[in-house]
Simulated scan of single mutants.
Amino acid sequence: MKIQEILSILKKLAPEENQSSWDNSGVQVAGIVTETDKVAVTLEPTPAAVSRCIEWGAGAVITHHPLYMKPKAPSAEGMYLDVLRSVIPAGSWLYAAHTSLDTRPGGPAFWLGEALGLTGGRLLEVEHGRAPVEASFYCEEPISREAADIWADHGGVHSVAQSRTGEVRLVCDESHWRGLADKIEFSLGRRPLFYLRSLTAPVSEVGFGEAGELPEPMPFAAFMDRLSGLVKRDALLVAGPRPETVRTVAYCGGSGTSLIERAARAGADVFVTGDMKYHPAVETPVCVVDVGHFSLEEEMMRRFAMELDEALPGAEVRFFPGDDPFSVYGK
């Protein structure tokens, strides 16, 4: 399968325009192979994990965390240089789907809410909110049903219509407009004169974390037992007031300490996240369960690998489990 096809599908499943301003989602190392039949997925771009992927023969390695946040010279010994020494000689591509994947609505970052059966899901933190655009142009001849269907099937398109006077109106997400305009030009054999205007609603929002309601309230101990089974952790850290029953659950993969107040405002009885810090734990107004940075995101990437396997019929996709850097002493 061509590398550019793989990259195109990755960008649809983890839209780079949705990443945070501080992030570096996207290509980390541009390889020289133009085709591959093996795509590896793993959480962390550690030398050990990347080497396992390369040894398997992966022409593309997909990780969650970026290899670097800002460009840096490969001039010092360490993990960064070790990864480059593994990837570059193989000619493979290294790609990171970080906050671009975290923020995808309904994506694998929201797997815990799905597993718990949460309803009424709402974002804890909105990263981007975008209103669609309306594009219009005049076409003397009626648009064929085939052409209209092709335009309507383009990503981000909400509606396609033509009036009796020949005016064609399309509503689509702004990020998809350029590709749609090219598709219209190809269909018509010319570039029409487009009139664009931004709409105020509906606004498409993407962001981090979610709050929702369990199908039925659960005793706190029963909820913790269920959570332990889902995240597969030997020990869970709990801070803050423990509720007698749990109905509303908030969660955020990775490091979610900064979202505690948002979880409380969302009415959460419990907030599940990782990387809890001491002072926020002392002051938290809501029960926080720290399941570790690794557990939620490891499962996210396993599910992302399954999604990619379906989306890349021309390549074999394999998930390479990572290693949690933390362990419980004596276990």
Rank of each mutant, 00 (worst) to 15 (best):
E125T: 09
A73K: 12
Y80L: 07
K12L: 12
S21K: 12
F304H: 10
V249Q: 01
A222E: 15
S204C: 03
R104Q: 13
W111K: 07
M224S: 04
Y95V: 15
L7E: 14
F220M: 08
A76G: 00
T46D: 14
A14G: 03
A76E: 13
R318I: 06
V317P: 06
E44V: 12
E310A: 14
R191F: 09
L112V: 04
G274A: 05
D269S: 12
G91Q: 03
K70C: 00
F208M: 14
E5Y: 06
H154Y: 15
A97Y: 06
G120L: 07
A211H: 05
A263C: 07
I3N: 11
K11C: 08
I143W: 00
I6C: 13
E310D: 09
L112M: 05
A90D: 13
A311M: 09
G254N: 11
R145Q: 15
L199E: 05
V83F: 06
R247H: 11
L67A: 05
H64I: 06
L124C: 09
D182E: 15
Q162D: 03
G156C: 09
P71W: 02
I6N: 12
E167I: 13
A96H: 10
A14K: 07
E5F: 04
F320Q: 05
H154R: 12
M224H: 01
E174M: 01
L196S: 02
G330D: 08
G267K: 11
A131H: 04
S163N: 09
A266Q: 10
E174N: 03
V291A: 12
V238T: 09
V171L: 07
L180R: 05
E283K: 05
L180A: 06
S159L: 06
G31A: 12
G117H: 08
V272D: 11
V160R: 11
P142Y: 12
P89D: 06
E244M: 00
K38M: 13
A305E: 03
V282C: 11
E185V: 06
G207D: 06
D82A: 15
D309L: 00
L101F: 07
A263K: 09
P243S: 11
G267Y: 11
P202Y: 09
R191C: 08
D153R: 15
P313H: 10
L259M: 11
A201E: 14
G253F: 01
L112G: 01
M218C: 01
G189C: 11
R318F: 02
F223D: 07
P325S: 03
L10V: 12
V133I: 14
Q19A: 14
